[in-house]
Design a protein around this nucleic acid. Structure first.
Lengths: 332, 332
DNA sequence: GTGAAAGCGCTAACAA
DNA sequence: TTGTTAGCGCTTTCAC
């Protein structure tokens, strides 16, 4: 059976369809009696407004898009995305928005797909995870007029960004390693992407190491378990192992930990290993991982709120960087 | 500047708006000349059809919903959800559908929210992850008339289901443990939810153990790392350790592995540990986890195709259970 | 092969 | 305070 429409409710309540609309939208000038009668009809007919009609008439899109540049399965299963997705969904739904998802590759076709969705009014704005986002892409995206909030990414000027205080976190982490007697630190961190917070973290790493007068090295990676593993294997092959290996995220740290086991290195005896993120699984590793906790969920919620404000034409204040905290466990 | 509409294109091409619509929808009776002229105007004006208008007119919803019963952060960050989300998104987008997400709790409010979204035409159907779904909830959901495909769940009769051949997987796993000399097996698996594939796996576990004449025990859990850890700690506290612990998923196996390290048990020397899923991170555990690979991504793609077929009024054949495969690594 | 008319379900503007 | 009219951008039906 067909679902009830506004007209059906109006007929049932003996009023005009406009009155029903006014009741629905909380218009003030409605007599309580009328309101109640209409509301009774709404319940009686189990009426639910058709969003498509509403969207068409109001020229308003109530779907946001969670966008990330991910392709390989390894990165897809990163707990990071999940946490953020859940937080964004919750925040968006609570405010009457839906959340769609887009997984982009680094090609024209991918970007064009997103553009289509925006132009077709399928999505009204996007929260973009900064990882692997390049400035050129960001410029393309904003040039369409789409509202965008960046998560974990720093761009000059006008970009709306939600980020964490990675510098402090990196400082605390280096201080911790030094306090445990480490004098030769290696950081595994991808730094291909301009604007990535990875750059900030790398700079903070070198600054802190200089401050304490310890050796510091930087090694590339791609955020994956495999790249963390590779980093340590390479260091070993070069015959120049550090006494502390700092993973740029928990997954790379996990890969490094695995490599250490394979090489017969004792952790933290021979080598300290630390991560970044504090995902739930790292406390079940052996040894339990020392890491820096980043409040991804809270940041995501803020990003959703910020984006919704933007799509409503407001100009919200950029939030302060979120504080991070050092979580000391057994690996460092 | 306002985006171009069908009328704008018609005016630009010097035809009626209906002709433009016909071109867009590939209607056959259009002269090639006209078609090309219209197409040129479409590009020239960068026209993109308004989905809201289309949806309203066609009374068709092109958003599907990925639904799971998740609440606590531990489960939220399960790689499982991510892989499925990505696969569903890809398949849906490729067919012109969007994918929204819903995280449901086990209360009325949550279920009602989903119902609202369906009745408001925000979502047209759902793929539901069977984990923690109860039959009563499924009955509620289908009673609304919403098309639903279940992932990893077996329900009697009419339910559309995509599942894996867990029985064979469990058989192969038990056979493997027995072939390595294990005679006392404990399975950690949540079995609260009726219809869950966990029940099938538990039954297959006992059947296989009986077949080989080895001891078999079943212990509850809730899919989380913590519950796997707890299971092994409990067994140890009772003074009745098995020689093989089978985790019902990779996360519980990971928790058990962590507990084994804490108890000073050598794996696989004192205790064999195996998982179920084969998530990427398990090969970076120490020791590397032996597990059963489940093709979650392929299953998710099939679920999306199946759901789309259903929403188009087709009656697709239920797919066969997907084959799983034993992945032998170091832990068992 | 193409155009004109009607209407999907809703809200904004105005009239009563 | 409530009802009437118009139209968002599109597709379906039917005339030409």
């Amino acid at each position: 059976m067909p679902r009830a429409t506004l007209k059906d409710v109006a007929a049932h309540a003996g009023v005009s369809h406009q009155t029903v609309s006014n009741v629905l939208n909380g218009h003030p000038s409605i007599r309580p009696v009328t309101r109640e009668r209409v509301q009774a009809s709404i319940s009686a007919l189990d009426y639910h407004p058709n969003q498509a009609a509403k969207a068409l008439r109001e020229a308003r899109v109530t779907t946001l898009c969670f966008t990330s540049f991910e392709h390989d399965p390894d990165n897809l299963s990163d707990p990071y995305r999940n946490l953020i997705q859940a937080a964004l969904t919750a925040e968006a739904n609570a405010r009457g928005y839906s959340l769609a998802t887009a997984f982009l590759a680094h090609d024209e076709a991918s970007l064009d797909e997103l553009r289509q969705r925006y132009l077709q009014r399928t999505i009204g704005g996007a929260v973009i995870i900064g990882t692997r986002l390049q400035t050129a892409q960001w410029e393309r995206i904003t040039s369409w007029g789409m509202k965008v909030v960046l998560l974990d990414h720093i761009l000059p000027g006008q970009a709306h960004t939600v980020s964490a205080d990675y510098e402090s976190g990196m400082h605390a982490l280096v201080a911790h390693h030094v306090s445990r007697g480490r004098r030769d630190l290696a950081l595994v961190l991808p730094t291909q992407d301009d604007g990535s917070t990875a750059l900030m973290r790398r700079d903070a790493f070198f600054a802190a190491a200089r401050h304490w007068g310890v050796r510091a090295r930087h090694i590339g990676g791609d955020w994956s378990y495999a790249s963390g593993e590779r980093a340590l294997l390479d260091l070993h092959a070069w015959g120049d192992l550090p006494d502390a290996l700092l993973g740029g995220n928990d997954r790379m740290a996990t890969g490094a930990l695995s490599a250490a086991h394979g090489l017969g290195l004792s952790v933290p005896g021979d080598l300290a290993v630390s991560g970044f993120d504090d995902f739930d699984f790292v406390q079940y590793l052996h040894p339990k991982l020392t890491t820096v906790r980043v409040p991804h969920a809270e940041m995501a919620r803020e990003a959703a709120r910020h984006l919704i404000a933007l799509t409503n034409g407001e100009t919200p204040q950029p939030p302060d960087p979120y504080p991070v905290s050092l979580i000391v466990r057994d690996s460092a």
